[in-house]
């Protein structure tokens, strides 16, 4: 029987009359890495904040480890490491003091020195006061705080925000390592390539509503296909004009087609002009994401 670490049912959050999220349904299995995609204002942070009981839902249910996030929030959060998207820390503390304090305030699956190991991996100087740290280094403090207790569930809101590419890579390695030891990961990101690289499943939220939840490979495979076909005789410009087929580019050797339906008809038409080569061009998650959003829709950062 599948064990769900996160269960969200018909979850809605309204800020007065302004929509935060509406009727969000989501289940994340134990051991999964789930990527949450959407532009600013789509509802990613709101959903994660409801799970952490930072804000309360207007309607619907949210559970972690089978416990209601509001009524049994303390027990639910006991096994969670959290990195908020808008991270703000106690500036007057040294990073090491902050970690000791943070460690002392929660249940831990590890020893009190694990934060040092994480800090070393992220090349973070913990002897400096937080106010003296750059934005990237503050983000590292947040990452260490999220991971330091080896939680059973990690909820990360844009964990690599503000980090340089090398450190981003290290954070992704930490995510994968944590997952290999059984930690479920629910993280949102704007960097689609990192979600594609590490996530088992991905959910896309648009204007507060879930528009897709699929395995990453299914999503990139099913939405549309792109074929590069070279011909012995170039077909006329309107040869592939039909429902669900779009000609992207054309040169002397062949055409690049984006095919949503009528694949069979496309192959038959292409064959009539003598196919010399055919290649499937992989579709990236970014392209899928943009396909869901369209230009300028659903947020201001798409």
């Amino acid at each position: 029987m599948t064990e769900f670490v996160i269960e969200i049912e018909k979850l809605s959050v309204y800020y007065g009359r302004h929509r935060g999220i509406l009727d969000v349904d989501l289940r994340i299995e134990k051991g999964e890495i789930f990527g949450f995609l959407g532009p600013n204002g789509a509802g990613k942070t709101t959903t994660q904040r409801v799970l952490m009981d930072v804000i309360r839902p207007t309607a619907g249910k949210a559970r972690m480890f089978g416990k209601d996030c509001q009524k049994e929030g303390v027990a639910a959060r006991d096994r969670v490491g959290y990195l908020p998207g808008e991270l703000s820390l106690y500036d007057n503390m040294k990073a090491s003091q902050f970690f000791k304090m943070y460690f002392s305030l929660q249940k831990s699956n590890t020893n009190h020195r694990y934060w040092q190991t994480l800090a070393e991996r992220l090349d973070l100087d913990t002897s400096r006061k937080i106010r003296e740290l750059s934005r990237g280094n503050r983000q590292k403090v947040g990452v260490v705080a999220g991971f330091m207790n080896k939680p059973d569930l990690l909820i990360l809101d844009e964990p690599t925000s503000g980090l340089d590419p090398l450190v981003q890579q290290t954070v992704m390695e930490l995510v994968l390592e944590a997952n290999q030891t059984g930690t479920t990961v629910f993280f949102s990101s704007h960097i689609l390539s990192e979600i594609q690289a590490v996530c088992d499943r991905v959910g896309i939220i648009r204007e507060g509503q879930m528009v897709a939840t699929e395995r990453v490979e299914d999503m990139t495979r099913q939405q549309f296909k792109r074929l590069r076909i070279n011909f012995a005789t170039m077909p006329p410009a309107d040869a592939f004009t039909q429902e669900g087929v779009k000609e992207i580019t054309r040169d002397e050797q062949g055409v690049l087609l984006e095919i949503r339906e009528n694949l069979d008809q496309v192959i038959k038409t292409a064959a009539s002009f003598g196919i010399t080569d055919i290649e499937t061009i992989p579709v990236t998650l970014e392209e899928i994401f943009l396909a869901y959003y369209g230009k300028g829709k659903g947020g201001n950062n798409a």
Partner: peptide, 14 residues
């Protein structure tokens, strides 16, 4: 307002 309370509220503390 400074954003510091979110981390504390998110801890397993009532």
């Amino acid at each position: 307002e400074a954003g510091k309370l979110e981390l504390i509220v998110a801890l397993p503390i009532p």
